[in-house]
Computed example of a mutant assay.
Amino acid sequence: MTTDHDGVRELLGAWAFGALRPEEEKAVPRHLAECESCAAEAERLRETVRLLDGPRGTAMSNGSGESEGVLALALRARPAVPQVAAHAAPYAATVAGLQALVRELDGRWSTPVVHDWDAHATLAHLLAADEPLALRLGLDARVPASPVPEGTSWEEAWSARTADVIAYERQRGPEETVTAWAAQAAALLATPEARDLERAALATTLMGIRLPVADHFLVRAFEAWIHTDDIGRALGLAVPPPPEEHLWRLVRLAVRILGMALGTAAPPVLFAVAGGESDAQWVLGSEDEPVRAELVLEPVDFCLLVGGRYAPEEVPRGATGDEGAVRNVLERAASLSWL
Rank of each mutant, 00 (worst) to 15 (best):
D118T: 14
D118M: 00
A119Y: 00
A119G: 07
A119T: 12
H120K: 15
H120Y: 07
H120S: 15
H120E: 08
A121Q: 13
A121R: 08
L123D: 08
L123Q: 05
A124Q: 12
A124S: 15
H125T: 04
H125F: 06
H125Q: 11
H125K: 01
L126M: 15
L126P: 01
L127Q: 11
L127N: 07
L127P: 04
L127F: 09
L127W: 03
L127A: 13
L127C: 14
A128K: 02
A129K: 04
A129N: 13
A129S: 15
D130N: 14
D130A: 13
E131F: 01
E131L: 05
E131Q: 13
P132S: 06
P132D: 14
P132I: 02
A134P: 08
A134E: 06
A134G: 03
L135D: 06
L135G: 12
R136Q: 09
G138V: 02
G138S: 15
G138I: 04
L139E: 14
D140W: 04
A141S: 11
A141N: 10
R142L: 10
R142D: 15
R142I: 15
R142F: 06
V143A: 02
P144R: 15
A145M: 11
A145F: 03
A145C: 10
A145E: 12
S146M: 06
P147R: 07
P147E: 01
V148A: 07
V148C: 06
E150M: 02
E150C: 03
E150P: 03
E150T: 07
G151N: 01
G151W: 01
G151T: 11
T152C: 07
S153D: 00
